[in-house]
Amino acid sequence: MKFDGAGIAITGSGSATPQAVVQNDDLSQLVETSDDWIRTRTGIRNRHLLEEGGSLSELAATAATRAIASAHLQPEDIDLVLLATSTPDDLFGSAAKVQHLIGARNAVAFDLTAACSGFVFGLVTAAQYLRTGAFQNVVVIGADILSRWVDWGDRTTCVLFGDGAGAVVCQRDEVDQLLGFEMYSDGSQNHCLNLSYQANPKYLVHDLTIQKGEYQAVTMNGREVYRFAVAKVPEVVEKTLFRSEIGVDDIDWLILHQANQRIIDAVAKRLKLPAEKVIANLHEYGNTSAASIPLALDEAIQAGKIKVGQTIVTSGFGAGLSWGCAIFRWGKS
């Protein structure tokens, strides 16, 4: 979808990751695996995990604070805190806690749950508030602590995930720097990737039995998710490029959800995009779900790779199943 008129500029970025690092060889102490097995199949070497006592709210707040400072704003300037996460500290939501931690006392705050597509969906959601003039400054955070929900005895999933947070500040601007977006969902494939609730019966009163249970560990059909990603991600990127009226040659950087290096390589190949235009950091962080795109974005900005005015293609994909693409220029015009 393309929009004409007043829009948004993405003016600040920030990220945060836990200090504790678990290498591939460390995981061989937990399950039957090896550094070579993990690297050749995923591209992952390390992952950062949140230690006991840490919280998603604190990690997200650190990323948001850095993004706000990067945009040369004060916390009081923020109108909306939008937290994309599937792993809140509180099932009722953690965005309000983040709002408090960062001192954004004038902001409304809410959570958005779209798994690994969360940051892209969150960015598009923020854009609608800015384009209508409802808000002037929005901080969009992607943050997940999947180590909480991984079965550390399942080698097909425990090698994949890490913890982290990334954030951007979006501001209303006369020139719209969000060039286009597309978002999709297919609930018929929901079973391919789950963090599901397991209900147990509990008799209450008057022949009434209710559900009383708990959430289970992450389960995934890796083969089906891979097939889904390599088919749908290039398609949604191509469609967004078409609707944005730009070509592959206009892309300065491609930042995909950091799930698997083979998926990233396959998408870049189909788009005929050279490797030097693809940003990837999953070798260090693994799959950080909603955090992966803003984390990679911020690292590239801090390293001086991404320059103001450059065109960035982002695409998230994952549980739902859901997928989407957002194309934007970095910074104000």
Rank of each mutant, 00 (worst) to 15 (best):
Leu50Phe: 09
Leu30Asn: 03
Thr11Arg: 01
Gly7Ser: 02
Asp36Leu: 09
Ala6Gln: 14
Ile8Arg: 11
Gln29Thr: 04
Ala61Asn: 09
Leu50His: 09
Ile44Ala: 08
Ala20Cys: 14
Gly43Ala: 15
Val21His: 03
Val31Leu: 06
Asp26Cys: 01
Ser55Asp: 12
Thr62Gln: 13
Arg41Ile: 06
Leu49Ile: 15
His48Met: 08
Thr42Arg: 04
Arg47Ser: 07
Gly14Ser: 05
Gly12Gln: 03
Val22Gly: 04
Ser28His: 03
Ile44Glu: 08
Ile10Ser: 06
Asp26Gly: 01
Gly43Trp: 12
Leu49Pro: 13
Ser34Thr: 02
Ala20Asn: 13
His48Gly: 08
Ser34Leu: 03
Thr33Leu: 00
Thr62Val: 14
Asp26Pro: 05
Asp25Trp: 02
Gly14Glu: 05
Leu56Lys: 06
Ile8Gln: 11
Gly53Met: 12
Ser57Cys: 10
Ile10Phe: 00
Ala61Pro: 10
Asp35Pro: 04
Val31Lys: 03
Gly43Leu: 14
Arg47Tyr: 07
Val21Leu: 11
Thr40Pro: 02
Ala64Thr: 09
Thr62Cys: 13
Asp26Phe: 00
Ile44Met: 11
Asn24Trp: 06
Thr62Asn: 13
Thr40Ile: 09
Asp35Gly: 04
Gly12Lys: 02
Arg39Ala: 15
Ile44Arg: 05
Thr62Ile: 13
Ala20Glu: 15
Asp36Phe: 02
Arg41Met: 05
Gly53Arg: 14
Ile8Ser: 13
His48Lys: 11
Val31Tyr: 01
Ile44Thr: 10
Ser13Met: 11
Ala63Thr: 05
Gly53Asp: 14
Ile38Tyr: 01
Pro18Arg: 01
Leu27Trp: 06
Leu50Met: 15
Leu30Trp: 03
Glu51Trp: 09
Glu52Gly: 11
Glu51Leu: 14
Thr40Arg: 10
Val22Tyr: 05
Thr33Ile: 00
Val31Thr: 02
Gln23Phe: 03
Gly43Met: 14
Ser15Cys: 14
Thr42His: 02
Leu59Ser: 12
Ala64Cys: 11
Glu51Phe: 08
